[in-house]
């Protein structure tokens, strides 16, 4: 990757951009140079995931997928093939006889998308096609649980695939069960808010971005649907690398979180602003940058808009609230978020 390419994409550059009303926080900004506007602001965007899909109202994953793939499409001059794990994204986009994808797309199984994508990459390699690029995508269950082996293998071989995990914190497609990405205390159908420690257990779960970093793959990033510029920049940056790359996108789920559909982006933003969802980047296993919290908010502001955490805010559960606050504090320190 050339220096020139990265300089305009550097996160610090967006903070120093001359003030243009909303700077680079809204989707578009008629006062900004084209290069600073998002892909989503243009009428030429690919709409990789198009209208007519059957995602719930206010689905964060539908949004995250279009954001990420459209950005990748722009970065590669529309040379993207996507493989998809079983899950909401697959089910709501391709129920026979209608597909909502406008890009070449394949769905095989729940736990194998990384390997399928690796296979596609291998096919392209053997054909000498270095311009077409491969993206694998799955939910958190398909990534951190059932698809973990294949993903780790893909990382190990450093296959030329960008893996995108849309993390909504559970198995939402099957009716909201706990995954290893379900946050502590969250209510799911298999971690009900009953007993002394209601909701999902503390001190459990896997945080895949750091596991990906441990594989020392070229690029790892976390993103959130509320900050489109940040998300697109990371996808575009990922496409400048060859080898295995991983982006973990936080996508609120109104159904699973018990939140208003209209609050999907708001919650995505609040999750980041309270410190529970760290946004950072890493190259070859080393943390290289983090996106700073703009206006820090208390975690309870974030929790109170989600029914899955309703029990946490009850007076007798202050120990849970305190523990969640500690998680946010730890993230802020660990990833240097302030």
């Amino acid at each position: 990757m050339s220096k020139e390419e990265t300089s305009t994409l550097n996160p610090s550059s967006r903070q120093t951009v001359k003030f243009y009303q909303t700077g680079t926080f809204t989707v578009g900004n008629r006062l900004l140079d084209e290069e600073f506007r998002t892909v989503q602001a243009t009428t030429e965007r690919s709409n990789s995931l198009d209208s007519g899909h059957r995602a719930c109202q206010g689905c964060g994953q539908a949004l995250g997928a279009r954001y990420a793939l459209d950005a990748a499409m722009r970065a590669t001059d529309n040379k993207i093939i996507a493989a998809n794990a079983t899950g909401c994204l697959e089910v709501f986009t391709t129920p026979y006889p209608e597909t909502a994808w406008s890009i070449p797309w394949v769905h095989s199984l729940f736990g194998n998308v990384a390997a399928v994508a690796s296979g596609i990459a291998a096919a392209l390699k053997s054909k000498g096609d270095s311009t077409t690029r491969v993206i694998a995508q799955g939910g958190d269950g398909g990534t951190t649980d059932i698809g973990f082996g294949c993903l780790s293998g893909m990382f190990d071989r450093n296959d030329d695939v960008l893996y995108i995990c849309y993390d909504n914190g559970g198995y939402m497609n099957t009716g909201v069960q706990r995954s290893s990405a379900t946050p502590a205390a969250a209510r799911t159908a298999t971690t009900m808010p009953v007993g002394d420690n209601p909701g999902s257990s503390f001190n459990t779960g896997k945080y895949l971005p750091t596991i990906a970093m441990a594989h020392e793959i070229p690029y790892v990033a976390t993103a959130s649907v509320h900050d489109l510029h940040d998300l697109e920049r990371k996808v575009e940056k990922a496409m400048t690398f060859r080898g295995a790359r991983y982006i973990h996108i936080n996508v609120p789920c109104p159904l699973g979180w018990g939140s208003q559909p209209a609050f999907t982006i708001k919650l995505s933003r609040m999750g980041v602003e309270c410190g529970l969802v760290p946004l950072f980047e890493a190259e070859n296993g080393q943390l290289t940058d983090s996106t700073k919290i703009r206006y820090r908010i208390p975690v309870e502001e974030y929790l109170k808009l989600q029914r899955r955490f309703a029990h946490v805010l009850k007076p007798h559960n202050t120990h849970q609230l305190d523990a969640i606050r500690a998680i946010a504090e730890n993230n802020i320190k660990r990833f240097n978020l302030l």
């Binding site: 394949v106 194998n112 690796s118 296979g119 596609i120 291998a122």
Partner: peptide, 9 residues
């Protein structure tokens, strides 16, 4: 799974 991807490509 690798075969599936490669063959589909």
């Amino acid at each position: 799974s690798f075969c599936i991807g490669a063959s589909a490509a």
